[in-house]
Write a protein that binds this DNA or RNA. Sequence first.
DNA 1: TCATAACCGAGACGGTACGTCAGGTCTTTTA
DNA 2: TAAAAGACCTGACGTACCGTCTCGGTTATGA
Lengths: 194, 194, 194, 194
Amino acid sequence: MGGGRPRDTGVEERVVAVAREMLREGGYARFAVDQVADRAGVAKTTVYRRWPSRDHLVVAAVATFLDDVAIEETGDLRADLVRIAAAIAAGLGQPGIRLLVSELIAAGARQPDLAASVYQLWARRRAASLDLFAAAVGQGEQADDVDPGLILDQIIGAVYYRALITGDPVDDDYLKRLVSAALAGAGVSSGGLA
Amino acid sequence: MGGGRPRDTGVEERVVAVAREMLREGGYARFAVDQVADRAGVAKTTVYRRWPSRDHLVVAAVATFLDDVAIEETGDLRADLVRIAAAIAAGLGQPGIRLLVSELIAAGARQPDLAASVYQLWARRRAASLDLFAAAVGQGEQADDVDPGLILDQIIGAVYYRALITGDPVDDDYLKRLVSAALAGAGVSSGGLA
Amino acid sequence: MGGGRPRDTGVEERVVAVAREMLREGGYARFAVDQVADRAGVAKTTVYRRWPSRDHLVVAAVATFLDDVAIEETGDLRADLVRIAAAIAAGLGQPGIRLLVSELIAAGARQPDLAASVYQLWARRRAASLDLFAAAVGQGEQADDVDPGLILDQIIGAVYYRALITGDPVDDDYLKRLVSAALAGAGVSSGGLA
Amino acid sequence: MGGGRPRDTGVEERVVAVAREMLREGGYARFAVDQVADRAGVAKTTVYRRWPSRDHLVVAAVATFLDDVAIEETGDLRADLVRIAAAIAAGLGQPGIRLLVSELIAAGARQPDLAASVYQLWARRRAASLDLFAAAVGQGEQADDVDPGLILDQIIGAVYYRALITGDPVDDDYLKRLVSAALAGAGVSSGGLA
DNA sequence: TCATAACCGAGACGGTACGTCAGGTCTTTTA
DNA sequence: TAAAAGACCTGACGTACCGTCTCGGTTATGA
């Protein structure tokens, strides 16, 4: 029950940093654990000691990407929603990111124990979006029967759906109509809450 | 200009049939071109002559899956939409299918020349769903400013989004609320068109 | 008895010409029947109708190379032999030719029906060398117990042996000693026949 | 600088042993790296880690063949030489060996980095033969100006030449004449050194 | 202070599949 | 018929990554 050598805490950071780089450069396909380890100056064993599979490492690396995105709320719910949706659409417009997102989804589907982590990836962003509604309600408007989650699903779901699955374009005009329809569906009057 | 030996059209069928089987049995992960060729009694090179990569073959095989699904319209638009959404949700509820769908999306993102084929996979089902609206309009209801595509995006998009990305449950109650909201957002009155 | 399309007599020539070129360019390893046919503007089938295997075609092509080499006899047997040996050594000094010769030998060993053709390839050159002895005898010298074939074997055999098998150098000095030893062994006096 | 897992030295032995077997069974043509690995209970990648190509492995395997051959010297140089030459001729008389030797030579010509190994294959046997001369000289005979290498070249070279290249028979009578001529050419008297 | 235990770098290893290449045969249309 | 075109089968090649394992060496703790 002795102690043993303590883990080098620098390893996590270095590896994840390199992993992030490699994802940016070559995407998911050319992401090889061997190379990550090499570049990070770390043994492959050390990598596998922390992340039980390539997918786990990728998810961990992506988790650090998403921190960057900041959501600014202007108080104008409709506009804020459009802006958020546009940001997502813009991201998915880049082939690299589109692939990465797809692969993450697939990774979650492949390994059940990863699913939760992957879901959480998006959950954080979703939570930020949900705050918008709280703020809007705070500014005083009826919100009794409004389900913000449902509205978000309709909007963001549609964006992912078009970008990843149907391949249809997601332009600004579409987004405006989308947001309007979703808000209207929830009984949020055009002039009202927004 | 002369001719050359004509392609054995039986090959396509046999290979795709075997590919379909193998997808059902082992999913995407255990799908190996080598084995498909073997089982189909065909040389691997012959497979590669038609489908330039594993992904291409998988997409081709999946394309034949989807033909089976029939959409029955009952005349009750709301109920039909709920049923369609439920069917999709049920499919995505199965881990194998969820993975397969994810991998297909990823395959499209990996190889640009595959994207179109993958999009088309879903497009066919989408077209069938859109017919519902045409039928509903035929039964006489206002539909001047209704955009069926937008409504579908909100519904189906939300289902995919929850099933694949957020991991949130997609139960019947949710679907009813979802469909209602989407229809309401388009100005379709509760008692009206549906 | 019907007529049928007559054989295009130009085919042999064209194919062999192309084959020769390709051997010069890429050597035996990169010699592909497919490409030969393509370049000659001929169907692969047509090639195989005339030469039953790749090896056969190669041998046929090489046979046309060797015609070029001319042996000039000067009347000085010893010098002539040295010159011949040197020519062979020079040829085998080129990696491409060394490989080609090796592969021809191998081809002969692989396919018994080719062996004869391959042997004949070298036989022609050998015959020319043997003429030297006839000429020398004609110029009057004892030749009762001289076996020209044996002498040639000793000389040319040694050259091939060193060039192909032991990798030892075959320089001029060596050749002179070699020829002298071989002639001496046959009882040909230094000053005499030569 | 540390080390890493040490190579399993058993692998070399097992693989080479299997390789040798397979060469004996099916010759060069049916020698497949895949099968060697399988039979040796080793991953193909492990094989390729040590021998960068099929040819390399074959050469390594053959190298272990040749160790078996023992050269017995009886003190009678002439007879010993005849016996050695006869042994070589007998070997080359077997189609399988003839092909193997040809392919080895070709392999050396194909891949420059293999040439040295192939040359060495024969060099060992040659060295053993050269010992005969040392022994003969030890038994006291003039050998000042005798070049054993030259003599061997003439004898062994001629044998290979006839067996592989001209296809002429190499019988006992021929060998006796050959050895005599070569010795005579070196000034070794019939009754003398031999 | 010394054994023990966990960590680390290095790299061999088994395994699985990939996509490719070339040889040689077979089938059709056209001259 | 022969020729051109090209599909087809066969068999093997060498490569890429994955995740596991076995080393020697290092750094902490606890007896």
